[in-house]
Amino acid sequence: MARAVSNRRKVGYTIAAWIIGLAIFFPILWTIVTSFKTEAEAISSPPSFMFFNWTTENYTTVLERSNYFRHFWNSVVISLGSTVLGLIIAIPAAWSMAFVPAKHTKNVLMWMLSTKMLPPVGVLIPIYLIFRDVGLLDTKTGLVIVLTLINLPIIVWMLYTYFKEIPGEILEASRMDGASLRDEIIYVLTPMAVPGIASTLLLNVILAWNEAFWTLNLTAAKAAPLTAFIASYSSPEGLFYAKLSAASTMAIAPILILGWFSQKQLVRGLTFGAVK
């Protein structure tokens, strides 16, 4: 009796959840579907969901006619570069705060977070002018620098929470075993923290890949990553839905896949450990 009721409920929940889930996912699904249509079918009325001539010509066109690969490569370099650079700066800092806490450690951490709260538009103008003057506008280097600084607080913070879970005695043991500080970090701490470092890397690549304030404002044709490349489709002459869809699908696919793997870390990273 009780089982039957709960099974009926379960069916209800399942139906409701799937309807809502599919509705939320629909714009992405629709983009993917449209990317396989011809331009004519893409704007045909009424629209067709399944029964059209599936084609991959949009992908070929986007890849051939535009600089898709260059922008894709820019996205890869900028997001990975800024994350790796951030990790190199953050690992020693997080080591310090997690294993040699001082009176001000907490304040330093909080202060680092507070820099993240600075609205980008508040510092856009000086950064833009400085970059213009030193020739960093529209360069990958410039964006790597900015995105490293923007994400550094999150990287430090995430690493700190992961390092905190490693018992300090193990690092002390390595010190007793004759390890120098460098050995301690390279042979003991880093390998032990690999899962945490990987999560941090993942989340920050995602954030950097999708960053769309600095990438739009500091790049033009040359260093533009996919965010800016896609934005160029908003001009009226770029209104080809199928090709837009193909380009969009390619731009979001890598991150969608990475993102699904990192749901847990996402919560921890984006709430700075306040929700676990």
Partner: peptide, 15 residues
């Protein structure tokens, strides 16, 4: 590292 002593910790502190 320079004292030439070895330590066994309560938690063992193995790597």
């Amino acid at each position: 590292a320079k004292r030439g002593l070895a330590m066994v910790f309560q938690s063992y502190a193995l790597y």
